[in-house]
Design a binder for these strands. Structure first.
Lengths: 208, 208, 208, 208
DNA sequence: TATGAATGAGAGTTCATTCAT
DNA sequence: TATGAATGAACTCTCATTCAT
């Protein structure tokens, strides 16, 4: 089980000031404000104010408002995909890989509600209208899923006739919907707790 | 097989039947513009221009920009849920109900790409930040799915230990991801064509 | 002798509203504000306020602040050069042409102090940093001067060994400096009144 | 013939002789940046960067951005007027004085294009909107010209009926226009080379 | 109903200047 | 002296909405 909080910690790029302390504060504030109001309604002044810096200071760390969102998404996504790839490498069984991914996915977003809100609410828009960089991450993530499914088919765990892309979408879509549902829910419950039943349904669905 | 094009036709409210033609033109233009630029970036002037009316005319039919989006979403959602409810009533087998829903879902959005884009890109935002009315539709739709699942459990088609809400999320999430994936794809393919394999995976996953 | 006030009237482009009334008010206000503060220090809000319109209204008539300045300069310059060309055509004697140009030059700017200030203070900058269009006018104007000088040389009025471009610069420079000097002077005096003595010096200087 | 390069060298005030080197570097950088972008568009950071110092360092030598421009203009103007006064004192003939001034004027600016650009583009603005100190220099310079003209009239070289101020403006205006024309020209040519013909025209114009 | 000119609040971004180090 | 991160006031331009015609 990964340490939850660090999982989704957003890290400053190497180019930043040594400490990155203010960078981090602005990024955290931005995620909170984006989560509360949505990217377009959020004002840079809100972010600065929440981060406890002057408006202009934001622009010492980020080129513009869009870059703040992109940084938040990309950093978290990057970290997640890298951790996921590393962990999967040490798991031989394809079904176990998917089960592990389900846990990681729901744990990562379940441990940082603001980030989860931003991912569920802004990621699709950003994939379409902002830098398509974030979409690359998505493709990479789905690539991990597809790889595991392919291996599962080869090793006889999953039905070989299933279209691998559709299967991956089912897996990802189910997890994604769990997060959306959790984000929109007013009552709090541990998101990762739903990983097993979801994995169960999908793995069973993929199996023979 | 449902008649595709009419499925997602947005209907004017009874009060403006007389002028329905212009109402409809504005709504269609709005969906196209929202699909192209996203709600926040779209300008009311774009919509008016695309609808071939003056800016001010838009406000004779809609209170404000937000109401245009809400009308588009609600009208389409309403129509879809009503049709879905009606169709499901005539299908006795719970698995067949879900299979039918998958077809309707993917057919409805697959037949109107602009509307699909708006649903996939704007619905979540609107559920959170705009009138939560659209979320009601979502709950209603998921209610249909849950009902079918519950019946399937009662009738022994599906595993009785599955949490019905989670199962519904898996079903809906898988379909939703197929649409998102289709919307973001550059190459064109018939969305409804993926209904069978997706239903297959999920139904198999729910089964014993 | 031309009617002074109409000489420097700035006219709206054909594309404008039929009346151009507001266009004209904004342009006049802009010239006054630019004259008072200089282009960069002048705020669009100053112009709008002085014109008695809302800030946004300015942008219904001009693309941006720079275009306001360019319009003011180009319109006045255009009108001047066209009038000058027309008048010169009816004057056979080259020295009389230059004498007439001196009067027109000083009369045009002497009848609209704000415009004169803008020309003397902003024209050079605009020639360098803004659209070089205004510089084209300058070249056109100097072309008229050079043409008259060339004719004067051919007809034996002026020394044939004088470089025509340098001679034109002397003529224009002398007039220009009279305007600058008049603009910077605190005491008021009729600018056109200096046309004769200036023309006298330069024409004498060009003569044999 | 004067030594060209030193002519327009900007000197630090006595108080900062010790650190004159950095003072000078900032001033030179400022002139270059002002010449390139114009005073208002130039950023202090540009100047600091070009001078190879930190932004804050600029403020150890100058009170503000405006003072940098004023210092550059005043220092160069001061040096020029002093040299001019000294040289004229040793020239007995009024026409020769003017001829010498023409050479000095065009040589001084012709030997430092950046400074020439700043003088031609920014001096008028600064005379009006910034410290009127630079205007004092102008009056002083024109005073030298007027003095020479007056002497020329008394000694019978120039027509006695000419208004001395207008005559001085013709002289200065012609030179000034030569500089402006040279600054705006894309092709390079030695500015001082135009001193003789210009002086020729004006002196002839002033003569009997 | 329909128009579209006019409004004016609002937000992102820049940059001269300061000051703790 | 020198630095450069931080500040925050200021300004251009946009656009949803209104209303006189």
């Amino acid at each position: 089980m990964p340490k939850k909080d660090e999982e989704t910690q957003i890290q400053p790029p190497a180019s930043s000031r040594a400490t990155g302390e203010k960078y981090q504060r602005i990024l955290d504030a931005a995620v909170a404000v984006f989560a509360e109001k949505g990217f377009h309604v959020a004002r840079v002044a809100d972010i600065a104010s929440k981060a406890g810096v002057a408006d202009g200071t934001v622009y010492l760390y980020f080129k513009n408002k869009e870059e703040i969102l992109m940084s938040a998404i990309n950093t978290a996504f990057d970290a997640f995909v890298n951790r996921a790839r590393a962990e999967l490498a040490s798991i031989p069984s394809p079904p176990d890989k998917l089960r592990r991914l389900a846990h990681m996915h729901l744990s990562a977003l379940g441990s940082n509600r603001n980030l989860a809100v931003v991912f569920q609410m802004e990621l699709r828009q950003s994939a379409r209208f902002l830098a398509p960089f974030s979409h690359e991450h998505m493709i990479e993530y789905l690539g991990l899923v597809r790889e595991a499914i392919r291996q599962g088919q080869e090793q006889g765990f999953f039905r070989p006739d299933l279209n691998e892309k559709i299967a991956a979408n089912c897996f990802f879509g189910a997890l994604d919907e769990m997060v959306t549902s959790w984000v929109l829910a007013s009552n709090e419950y541990p998101l990762e707790g739903t990983a097993e039943p979801v994995a169960n349904v999908i793995l069973h669905g993929l199996g023979k």
